[in-house]
């Protein structure tokens, strides 16, 4: 299932947050969305999963305008993983994952064995099967995130939207999570703040700046010092990672550069 945005514009009041965004994620592709804070990454994703109502343009899932879909149908086709903060109301890990079955159940239907199997399978895939009966709130950040992925898997959607999924995770869990996502045979569109993670895992990247798509292409092509300076305002050196062969970005600040220039 492919996902496309055509000339999507969105503003809140006078502020134009997205301007004529065009992008297309093909079936089975893992596409990253990079850009500095406030560039419109989350805003674009929120338009995609219809948290926000776009002003102009159209977003399609397999050529069907998402606005024509019911929330339920939408959730059958697209799952969303975002930063979730739950303060008080607690669920067990299993209950949490079973919520992924929500779009597939009419309100008159009871839970079936197949729902339970799907949920158990999803937990197995993220390596959290032993945590079934545990309280969600007692889990560490990495464990929580894995449970939420299991919920998204239980949703059995063909498209997965991720909003900075590795935020607040230790590096080990970041890599674990991305490995897991890479294995999935579905269409993924992810806003990523870590450029090296994006470079390592994504097939293609969109760079967004001030609500506009600044560039797009495979990481090797897109991640160039010029573009990175233009978008993120930092100096970089892009090397090839000796082990993975993927682009790897080394950053240095203004101050470091000055020091470099002053010392012969």
């Amino acid at each position: 299932m492919n996902l496309s945005c055509e000339a999507v514009s969105y503003s809140i009041g006078e502020r134009e947050l997205l301007r004529e965004i065009d992008c297309r994620i093909d079936s089975g592709e893992f596409v990253g969305l990079i850009g500095p804070n406030g560039s419109g990454k989350s805003t674009l994703l929120k338009n995609v999963y219809r948290r926000f109502k776009l002003d102009q343009g159209v977003i399609r899932l397999d050529e069907r305008d998402v606005r024509s879909l019911s929330r339920r149908r939408m959730a059958q086709l697209m799952s969303v993983l975002r930063q979730e903060t739950m303060v008080e109301f607690d669920f067990t890990v299993e209950e949490m994952v079973r919520m992924g079955r929500h779009p597939h159940k009419g309100w008159w239907e009871a839970e079936t064995d197949s729902d339970r199997d799907i949920a158990a399978n999803a937990l197995e895939r993220v390596g959290m099967a032993d945590f079934r009966g545990r309280s969600f709130l007692s889990l560490s950040g990495g464990e929580k995130q894995r449970v939420l992925i299991a919920r998204a898997l239980a949703q059995e959607a063909q498209v997965l939207i991720l909003d900075e999924p590795t935020n607040h995770l230790d590096v080990r869990y970041q890599l674990q999570l991305m490995d897991l996502l890479e294995q999935l045979d579905i269409t993924i569109f992810a806003a990523l703040h870590d450029l090296n993670i994006a470079a390592t895992y994504c097939h293609r990247l969109y760079a967004i700046c001030n609500g506009k798509i600044a560039a797009s292409g495979p990481p090797e092509q897109l991640l160039q010092p010029n573009l990175l300076r233009q978008i993120f305002g930092v100096d970089t050196e892009v090397i090839r990672h000796p082990r993975t062969g993927r682009p790897h970005i080394l950053f240095f600040s203004e101050k470091q550069r000055k020091k470099e220039r002053d010392t012969p």
Binding site: Y49, R50, R51, S70, R71, R72, R73, M74, A75, Q76, M78, S79, V80, R82, E84, T85, M86, F89, F91, M99, G100, H102, P103, Q155
Partner: peptide, 14 residues
């Protein structure tokens, strides 16, 4: 209970 935004992504017409 997971919040309106999450409920929507799970298919609730909130």
């Amino acid at each position: 209970l997971l919040g309106e935004e999450t409920a929507e992504t799970l298919g609730v017409a909130t």
